[in-house]
Design a protein around this nucleic acid. Sequence first.
DNA 1: ATGGTTTTTACTGCGTC
DNA 2: GACGCGGTAAAAACCAT
Length: 316
Amino acid sequence: MTEREQARTRAPEQETEDERVSCPECGGRIVASGAESVCQDCGLVVETDEIDRGPEWRAFDTKEKNEKSRVGAPTTQTMHDKGLSTNIDWRDKDAYGKSLSSRQRQKMQRLRTWNERFRTRDSKERNLKQALGEIDRMASALGLPENVRETASVIYRRALDENLLPGRSIEGVATACTYAAARQAGVPRSLDEISEVSRVEKNEIARTYRYVVRELNLEIQPADPESYVPRFASGLELSDEAEHRARALLRNAKEKGVHSGKSPVGLAAAAVYAAALLTNEKTTQAAVSEVADISEVTIRNRYHELLEAEESIGAA
DNA sequence: ATGGTTTTTACTGCGTC
DNA sequence: GACGCGGTAAAAACCAT
């Protein structure tokens, strides 16, 4: 009693710390992601070279990673009931092995039914808990905004309800849901980026993703290259002007249909590079390829196409 | 499985600082 | 001479069939 009161009087001090920074670009919330501070809404990288709070250890194989890893969903969640759920024997015998009266038998039957119901519900709950933890972890590692987590959770719940889980790993599906949600929300992350923070192989993510999308009839249009632009641009510390031009370049390309079949990431990267050139800002193809995680060759090819498309418009 | 398309890898030559 | 850039060929990855 007295102890609790003391605790309550002490507590408020902690909450006065003012960590509420908002994004200079769009006013969104700033979230720490690895060694960077990133805006949740537009992806602007505000600060780099902070202390990286990532793991201090290195793992050289999966086994080691599992052993050393101290991050991710706490095991208390994955082991939620610690194996303590009950199981009611199907034999209608009491502790001494005598048969039960018919009245008792009926009672046991009812208990079995309910126990089973609770247990399966529990297992779903546990499953969901773990998945949501995983989604949350990945989303914050990727600097994805709150609403993406929401949609990811919703998608996951649907997957669970439709029994899409059996035969698939929770993490795989959770990752796929996150990927889908990010795309749906217009803040896509590439498969590579996703698989960076997931414990699941890229291939499996892609497979599970396709499966989930098909089964749930999610409508997800191919990622819009423009949605990558802000992230790349701020990663390269380019001006708003350049960012704007990159967008214009992409819009134009879209109209001319140059972009079909090409990877949106490559297109976005090329546009950013081309825009930097047009605004006389110094960047190298290597730098762009770095932040966009795309090869320089692809950037070259794309940005030629972009400029061609642009010229034929400019001439008219 | 297969064939077509896109992306990546690796290498080379050119111009500039 | 290192660097940025452009081009090319061959390998790899991807996708629809």
